[in-house]
Amino acid sequence: MSETPLRIAIIVGSNRHGRFGPTVARWFIERATAHEGVHPDVIDLASLEVPGVLGTAPPPEVAGPLAEATATLERSDAFVVITPEYNHSYPGALKNFIDLHYTQWQAKPVALVSYGGLAGGQRAAEHLRQVFAELHAVTVRDTVALVNAWERFDAEGRHKEALEADAAAKTMLDRLAWWGHALRDARAVRPYAA
């Protein structure tokens, strides 16, 4: 069993102007960076200009960042998707980004951090579970759902209820690390065949 730190791609799934995602992402990235045995990489969809039509090649000026994001997914052992809830689901740019990739997700675990109003983005998270199952990925049961997220952080981006939120993030990262190690070890012994 390898104890090499897990490479975790943290995907910031919103690209709307004025989005709250960067606040949630900064908070979560701090927790992931502090988590023992984890090496986080960040993919922010706002910096990628994800193509709107599947199968359409991105313009040359964004092909580089998108190719770099693809390479990050390829070398990752696990993923965390940070998503808002838009209209009872997740953002279209996130769907397009997920669908532009296939083998990169296979036999790897995915954890979900959602944020939104009274549901805390959980409807978006539940929709993502179905999508990742189809891509042969495993979603971990434990999630972080931030109810009325914009009220939960102060002006400096610190969570006002840090003990509870940090405990949820730690539990989720612990579970993700377990699955990440288990599946990485399994892929090393027997390549996954989709």
Results as ranks from 00 to 15, higher is better:
residue 178 W to F: 15
residue 109 P to Y: 00
residue 17 H to L: 07
residue 168 A to Q: 13
residue 103 T to M: 05
residue 53 V to N: 05
residue 140 V to H: 02
residue 180 G to H: 03
residue 82 I to L: 13
residue 21 G to C: 14
residue 128 L to D: 01
residue 176 L to F: 06
residue 90 Y to C: 08
residue 147 V to G: 02
residue 179 W to L: 09
residue 143 T to P: 08
residue 70 T to F: 06
residue 9 A to P: 01
residue 56 T to A: 14
residue 113 V to I: 11
residue 193 A to M: 07
residue 91 P to F: 00
residue 112 L to P: 01
residue 139 T to Q: 03
residue 26 R to Y: 07
residue 171 T to H: 08
residue 104 Q to F: 05
residue 4 T to F: 12
residue 96 N to H: 05
residue 123 R to T: 06
residue 8 I to V: 14
residue 27 W to E: 03
residue 149 A to Q: 01
residue 52 G to L: 15
residue 183 L to H: 00
residue 34 A to K: 08
residue 110 V to A: 03
residue 51 P to A: 04
residue 163 L to P: 03
residue 147 V to P: 02
residue 147 V to K: 06
residue 130 Q to C: 11
residue 26 R to I: 03
residue 12 V to N: 02
residue 110 V to E: 04
residue 114 S to H: 04
residue 141 R to W: 13
residue 91 P to D: 04
residue 191 P to I: 01
residue 108 K to D: 00
residue 46 A to S: 14
residue 126 E to G: 04
residue 183 L to M: 12
residue 75 R to I: 11
residue 159 H to F: 02
residue 63 A to F: 07
residue 1 M to A: 14
residue 182 A to F: 13
residue 127 H to D: 12
residue 155 A to Q: 05
residue 86 Y to W: 10
residue 96 N to E: 08
residue 3 E to S: 09
residue 142 D to Q: 15
residue 28 F to K: 02
residue 119 A to I: 05
residue 68 E to H: 10
residue 34 A to M: 13
residue 109 P to Q: 07
residue 34 A to E: 13
residue 19 R to P: 02
residue 177 A to P: 00
